[in-house]
């Protein structure tokens, strides 16, 4: 049973023990190393935002944390167990306690919104149909989508699709909720609505939330802790205030939105690929 596998450790959670600890995590795509041995903690019941630009490896990190990519080294500790070295069946048990909201929503196009949200409940629980219907309505209500049960995903707007995806991620009452670029491709008002939703979920359910994004305004609004990931390395890890005060050149460049210098020489290009910063730019 999932309950035995992940003992509820409320006391530890209250003390702010990490829900997820990542140690020296390395991930390769073929011969190319994307994450170069990163370590961080996601405190239980808090929102951790993983900031990073395009190609920083932040989406790879998220995919690895939910088990879609296999690390080549290091460990991912979730509730005291190493997720990276678990058997697939054990991972599945843990996955039932995690929710993931994909960048595109990833709703099943052939099912209605309600069927999408009901799917994990139908597959993993023995609840009867009417109970599942009630739970689905509850979840949709939580994300502000009451009355859209019978819509197909294609009939929804971008923001509504994201909300529906959150409702599906919440279906199994997860302990950890992952968001991949929650506000990507949305207009500022709709994006602010998604930020509000994330804040509301944290306050209402005290779940651990991990958000991967490159949207600064949204990140500072929702984060309790932040990590800045650049070219597969963590260059900053702290509270939003600590990041704001940081004098680290890479952090400043990212937060002040300074464009990368044009790559003119071959050595610049090589340095960009390897992630090493030339001394004169530090």
């Amino acid at each position: 049973m999932a309950g035995e596998l992940i003992p509820k450790d409320d006391a530890a959670a209250e003390r702010g023990a990490p829900a997820i600890s990542v140690r020296d995590l390395r991930v390769n795509y073929g011969d190319r190393e994307i994450l170069h041995g990163i370590s961080f903690d996601a405190p239980a019941g808090q929102t951790l935002v993983i900031l990073g630009g395009s190609g920083s490896g932040k989406s790879t990190l998220l995919r690895t944390l939910v088990g879609l990519e296999n690390p080549t080294g290091g460990s991912i500790w979730i509730r005291g167990r190493d997720f990276a070295s678990m058997k697939e069946s054990e991972r599945d048990e843990l996955r039932k306690r995690m929710g993931m909201s994909f960048q595109s929503g990833a709703l099943f196009g052939s099912m209605t919104v309600a069927e999408n949200v009901a799917l994990p409940l139908r597959e993993h629980t023995n609840l009867d149909r009417s109970t599942i219907d009630i739970m689905v309505r509850l979840k949709l209500n939580q994300v502000g989508l009451s009355g859209f049960e019978n819509y197909m995903p294609a009939q929804l707007s971008g923001g509504m699709r994201k909300r529906a995806a959150v409702a599906r991620a919440l279906a199994m009452d997860p302990e950890v909720l992952f968001f991949d670029e929650p506000s990507a491709g949305l207009d500022p008002i709709i994006a602010a609505g998604i930020d509000d939703l994330i804040l509301k979920l944290k306050q209402a359910f005290h779940i651990t939330i991990l958000v991967v994004t490159h949207e600064l305004a949204s990140a500072f609004l929702i984060a309790d802790r932040m990590i800045l990931l650049i070219k597969g390395n963590i260059v900053a890890d702290g509270t939003p205030e600590e990041l704001r005060q940081s004098t680290h050149p890479r952090v400043r460049q990212f937060l002040d939105r300074v464009p990368e210098k044009e790559l003119t020489a071959e050595i610049d290009y090589l340095q960009m690929l390897t992630g090493e910063i030339p001394p004169e730019r530090q």
């Binding site: 995919r63 939910v66 088990g67 879609l68 991972r91 599945d92 048990e93 996955r95 039932k96 995690m98 993931m100 994909f102 990833a106 709703l107 099943f108 799917l119 994990p120 597959e123 993993h124 599906r168 992952f178």
Partner: peptide
């Protein structure tokens, strides 16, 4: 990917 993260 969504199926896999839902343990399906």
């Amino acid at each position: 990917d969504a199926l896999e993260t839902m343990a399906l």
